[in-house]
């Protein structure tokens, strides 16, 4: 899911960086200043989740966990994922520094979008687990579509890339949905206020 250096054209890189900077600026205004440690912990969770990978077909995929982070943090997921993506590029060479903006758009925007959409479902007990499953899996699907869109803007054929990306991420979508549902369940049992406070503050 991380786009490397040298794959995208310069205008696409510039567009991605501008979009990421604008959304990051907006999200900083909504940062829950009293819950920064939660933001940091979730950022760390995202940072290591990308290291858990498994081979699918000819390629290799990994956990993303952006749905869970978006659901907990709301807009604050943007800075959390941005810091983690920056460090992943720097320390692991996952993606490149020139594609950081694009990668932020791919992973963080669906996190915020799905988090905000599915939040009401998570707060109700009856719809919590299906809501969490959908939040986890659809945020991966949205990320895949954005990835295909960025590749298409740089010359790939959109439908071919989107099809390939979505196909390869079907196991990830299922796994992410399950992991998100389990995590949401645990958090609501152990510390429900942790789930509600940062995003409400945002």
């Amino acid at each position: 899911m991380h786009i490397s250096d040298g794959v995208l054209s310069a205008p696409v890189l510039a567009g991605g960086a501008a979009a990421a900077a604008a959304s990051l600026g907006w999200s900083l205004r909504k940062l829950p200043w009293n819950h920064l440690m939660e933001v940091g912990l979730l950022s760390a969770a995202f940072f290591v989740a990308s290291l858990v990978h498994f081979p699918v077909g000819p390629s290799s995929v990994h956990l993303i966990m952006n749905g869970l982070i978006g659901a907990i943090l709301g807009w604050a997921a943007l800075p959390a994922l941005s810091v983690a993506l920056f460090l992943q590029a720097l320390l692991f060479q996952f993606g490149g520094l020139s594609t950081l903006g694009v990668n932020i758009c791919i992973m963080a925007l669906p996190a915020v979008l799905c988090g905000r959409c599915f939040r009401p479902l998570l707060l109700r007990e009856k719809t919590r687990l299906p809501g969490a499953f959908l939040c986890g899996s659809l945020s991966v699907a949205c990320s895949g579509l954005l990835l295909a869109l960025f590749l298409a803007l740089s010359g790939d054929i959109f439908f071919a890339s989107a099809g390939a990306v979505l196909l390869i991420h079907i196991p990830v979508m299922i796994l992410e949905g399950v992991v998100t549902a389990v995590m949401v369940r645990i958090i609501f049992r152990v510390a429900p206020e942790m789930f509600t406070s940062p995003a409400e503050a945002a």
Binding site: S4, G6, S59, F150, L151, I168
Partner: peptide, 8 residues
């Protein structure tokens, strides 16, 4: 070029 934007 390993597909999906992966490049080494």
């Amino acid at each position: 070029l390993a597909g999906q934007g992966h490049r080494g």
